[in-house]
């Protein structure tokens, strides 16, 4: 059963049930007001539209901002986890990969990746595979005093708008 939209305390009271003093008073709208003209109505609608358009814009922009912020948070999480672990590994045990290799998310987030030092698993936070691609690359980096490797994490996601939706995290695995 549909509930009444008004509070019971605010129910309309029949004029006949009003006190005599109030019963004799004419209705307010009736005093010298013939009603809204068409022009006034159109202006009012236009004003309402002008008011609601920024509200709508503000809402959609905020939604997009939130979405971007969420992506950024996830991306920075991935990048921080990646960089911190690569710095700990040092230069030993690496081998170059043949180009960029994808990483498929797995439960638990532990990855034994090709090119990484043996028995050194990379731990990454989960990411939505349907909307985000994560890949990596290990490259021998020659111009260093001791052998080193440039390890890159490529992240690409499905964002809205024309702006960039990919980033590369690079870390140098070296003696330094």
């Amino acid at each position: 059963m549909k509930k009444p939209l008004t509070h019971p305390a605010c129910r309309r009271v029949e004029p006949s049930r009003l006190p005599p003093r109030l019963r004799q008073s004419p209705p307010v709208a009736a005093v010298g007001q013939p009603g809204l003209t068409l022009v006034e109505l159109m202006v009012a609608v236009a004003l309402l539209a002008v008011v609601f358009l920024p509200i709508w814009l503000s809402f959609t922009q905020s939604q997009a901002t939130i979405a971007e912020g969420q992506w950024e948070s996830l991306v920075i999480n991935l990048g921080t986890a990646f960089a911190g672990q690569i710095r700990q590994l040092g230069p030993a045990g690496w081998s170059p990969t043949a180009g960029i290799l994808p990483i498929t998310p797995v439960p638990g987030g532990e990855y034994q990746l090709a090119g990484f030092p043996p028995m050194r698993k990379l731990i990454l936070p989960p990411w939505p595979a349907a909307q985000m691609e994560v890949a990596y690359e290990v490259q021998a980096f020659g111009p260093l005093p001791t052998p080193g490797f440039l390890v890159c994490l490529h992240v690409r996601w499905q964002g809205k708008g024309p702006r960039r939706h990919q980033i590369v995290f690079a870390e140098l695995a070296t003696d330094e």
Partner: peptide
């Protein structure tokens, strides 16, 4: 008031 509100929301946008 409506006009002011519109400017406010425009600013928020």
């Amino acid at each position: 008031l409506l006009t002011v509100l519109s400017f406010l929301f425009l600013f928020l946008s």
